[in-house]
Design a protein around this nucleic acid. Structure first.
Lengths: 230, 230
DNA sequence: TCTTTGAATATGTAGGACATAACTACTATT
DNA sequence: AATAGTAGTTATGTCCTACATATTCAAAGA
């Protein structure tokens, strides 16, 4: 029996299957020929013949590209290159119960980094209406007692901050990271919150400087920062 | 002829193909039964029979999951649930020539946000050796004249910063965003650099506070921040 | 000119066949 | 008895054929 160490050192010989290869070749092909979204692709049979594989194999590869949103197919008309949504592929894989411990930690840290850097975009784009809305969200929290409400409100508040960044991709990204945070929070011994509340942050955003706001955010997230390991 | 706007508003009715449905059902199935990495999956024929579809359809769906690294298959032994690498799926889709203009801009902004927030992790984990190495990289730049070297050195410097974050996922993420930045830079009228140089940043990191470093980073990236649109 | 009808075509799905690798159990050899 | 070799079994990998279905295109009809 091979030791785990040996396994680690040598790695596993992963034999490429035909669909793997075809997927790669197709990707190269699209890049080489600099296909643009909307351009039509050769039909399956031609691809199969050119590559010297069965139509089955080509279809498996195409199925992958279709999943990623790179190609769209319609009957009779054939296939066209499409513009993939970069986040939807990400979403498929983001399952906290499958992701490893280390990656989970990395992603949680990523959130901290994002929220500290977010101040730049927020201060470049925030409007009065935004700040008012944020304040309203923060105020709602004062009434809420139940834990489930707290979590929901937490998400709403921070979500609003991302929204204020004016960066849609970022906002969506945060949105799909939520289950991860949720998972991490749940595995924490207890819910710890920093000295700076949501309302404090909203006030800072209304009247304070970018640096003051960031400092406030740091304090708000401090319990998490304190747990960062060297 | 339908206008592009109308198309955008209504979206296209995308008819779900069988592999689409099967992929979804399999994903649900794995979640419901709370499969863990290493657990064996039923064999293809059984899946096909249970779902009432041909083995072909099941294989297309499985091929997708295999691509994402969610399942691994070995002959005779069957399939097992695996731990997907969350970034590899991302990588497949990150082609600047295909991604839309807006998303491209969003991603570039994401970089700015990351580098501003990165200070937190860097200051929590940096070592003397790291700082020295960073300084060495910054010094190399002084000699270089050619543009290609400048870009390479630029990447090396910022890459080192991500590395110092001690967050592997983040570092890899940055690495795969590089082609995007490259693309954005190339479409810029000219290469503009801020007042604060790499060497300045390295010095700040050695002697300055976290806030000073972040301020330096802001100045370094200032040309980009100035171009942020409301 | 507009509508309708039908043929043509590329993808979608099914099902069967066989190759191949890997596991099992058994056999033979020292 | 321990090891090496052998044959059989099994699930995946690949190929092939057939047909359904949607969509386009063009010809026929009003």
């Amino acid at each position: 029996m091979a030791s785990d160490e040996l396994k680690m050192d040598l790695g596993r010989i992963v034999q490429q299957t035909m669909p793997d290869i075809v997927e790669l070749r197709l990707r190269e092909y699209l890049k080489e020929k600099s296909f643009r979204p909307g351009d039509p692709l050769p039909k399956e049979i031609d691809l199969a013949e050119s590559l010297g594989v069965s139509r089955n194999v080509v279809r498996e590869a195409l199925s992958r590209l279709r999943m990623l949103g790179m190609v769209e197919t319609r009957k009779r008309r054939g296939m066209v290159l499409a513009r993939p949504d970069i986040l939807s592929s990400f979403e498929r894989v983001l399952d906290p119960s499958i992701i490893g411990e280390t990656t989970l930690k990395d992603i949680f840290e990523l959130r901290l980094v994002l929220e500290m850097g977010l101040a730049e975009l927020i201060y470049a784009r925030k409007t009065k209406a935004d700040v008012e809305e944020l304040k309203a969200i923060a105020l709602k929290q004062m009434d809420g007692k139940k834990g489930s409400f707290r979590v929901k409100n937490e998400i709403e508040f921070h979500g609003k901050l991302y929204e204020m960044s004016g960066n849609d991709t970022l906002k969506r990204f945060q949105n799909m990271l939520l289950p991860i945070f949720d998972y991490v929070i749940k595995t924490e011994p207890k819910f710890i919150s920093g000295k700076v509340s949501h309302l404090d942050l909203a006030e800072l955003l209304a009247k304070g400087s970018k640096e003051e706001f960031r400092q406030g955010m740091y304090e708000h997230l401090k319990p998490h920062f304190d747990r960062l390991k060297k």
